Structure formats: structure tokens, C-alpha cells
Amino acid sequence: MLALGKIKAITLDLDDTLWPIWPTIERAEKVLLEWLSAHAPMTSALFANPAALRDIRAEMTSSRPDLKHDMSALRLESIRLALTRAGDDPQLAEPAFEAFFAERQRVTLFDDVLPALEFLAERFPLVALSNGNADVQRVGLGRFFRASVCARDFGVGKPDPRIFHAAAGAVDTMPEFILHVGDDVTLDALGALNAGMQAAWVNRSDAIWPHEQEPHVTLTHLGELKDLFAGE
């Protein structure tokens, strides 16, 4: 059971908790391909081949394990590798990535998100806690968050307890007084539990909880969290 009275701060996952991620990525990859088509047509042809793209990503992941927590750097270096292999100028990687990255920040929030954030931010310090590369300022949600902690900057990602503890430290609060809210059963909910936090699992798809240790509360949307605090 959720101990509402203990909560002094809330950490929130971003991708698939506040917005659906794959429509966003698909749009951003389309923009990237259009940019490459205009500026690096040989690379555009290479990226248009799914098998070649998978090979490039797989090679980059295996050859640069140091980038496994930095989605931006991994994407940038994959583009650079594709440019090099296609015979285009590898210096085009930075502007190509920026075309992708700018579109990646254009997210479509779930309908329940804005009312919930407005309600929660008036009552608690909120911290964005993500393994991805969304920027809460660029997506237009910066006003709600006291801090943002991401795997790219911190060096390790969820479910490592250290990144949860870093998020707690960002608002000078002990983990036991924090509620973490996220959609991933292992990275978010189980990670938060193992870090000593309360955990709210956002289950928008009626999935089955797979672990023996259960979250403190399961939500089908963030409006339910708002209702819980409003009824306290």
C-alpha cells in the first residue's frame, strides 16, 4: 500500500510514462532520413536499408560499450559511421543528429499528463529521472521539474540504485520519502523498490506484473495518482 503521508518528493520517468516514445522516434527518424536525403544521399540510401541500419547500430553498441547509457552519443556516432561507410562527409553527423534530436523533443503527451503535473508540482518537488535523451526544457515541461537526472549525464542508468539516489539528492530528500513513477516494470518500479523508494507502476496497457516484489500502487494513468493525493 502507498504511504501517502511519507512522500516528500516525486521522481518521474519520461518516455512511455508522460508520452508514447515510439511514435516520437519514428517521426524523428523520418526527419533524419529526409535531412540525409538532401545533404548526404549515399548515406540516406544506406539508412533506408533496415538490415544495414541494424548492422551499424549493432556494431556501434558492441564497439562502444562506454556509450550504452548515452543515447544521444550512440545515435550521433551511428550516424557518423554510416556517413563514413557511404563515402559522405562524417562532419555532417552533428547537423544530421541535431535534425533528429530537435524532432525527438516534439512529444505528444498522454491526455492525463498536464493536469497531473500541474497538480503534483504545486505539492511536491518533482525530478525527471530517465535513461533516455529527452530534455524536459525542450519538450516544454521544464516549469514543473525542480531537477532532471539522466543516465547520459550521471553515467549509469536505471535500475541501478545509484541513479535513484542521485535523484533523491537533487532535492535533498532521503529515498524512503520519495515516490518514483514510471512505466517499466524492471527499470522503474523494481529499480525504485530496490533503491528504497515507494514505487508507482504506470500500466497503461493492462500488462501483468512479472516480479515477486510488487509496487506500492499500480496506475492506469497519472490522473489516478492525482486522485489519490486529492483524496488524502
Rank of each mutant, 00 (worst) to 15 (best):
F100M: 03
G231H: 15
I163Y: 03
F100R: 02
A102W: 06
W22C: 08
F119P: 03
L109V: 06
F47C: 03
T186K: 11
R123I: 09
P23V: 07
L2S: 01
E26Y: 14
L120S: 13
D206Q: 12
A3K: 14
E34M: 07
Q105M: 08
D172S: 07
S44L: 00
I56S: 14
D135P: 12
I79N: 13
E214T: 13
H39S: 12
E26D: 11
Q198C: 03
G191M: 01
A3M: 11
L120T: 11
R104H: 06
A93W: 00
F154A: 03
A230Q: 10
A168F: 02
A151F: 01
F164S: 05
K226T: 15
N203S: 10
P125H: 13
A99R: 06
A82E: 04
H165R: 09
V185T: 09
G132P: 01
I79V: 12
E118M: 05
K6D: 13
E122F: 04
A192F: 02
H180A: 12
E26P: 08
S78F: 02
A102L: 06
F177S: 14
R57K: 13
D111P: 03
D206I: 05
E34N: 14
S205P: 06
V127S: 04
L36W: 08
D89C: 12
P20F: 02
E29T: 15
A116G: 09
L12I: 01
V136G: 00
T61M: 14
A102T: 08
T173E: 09
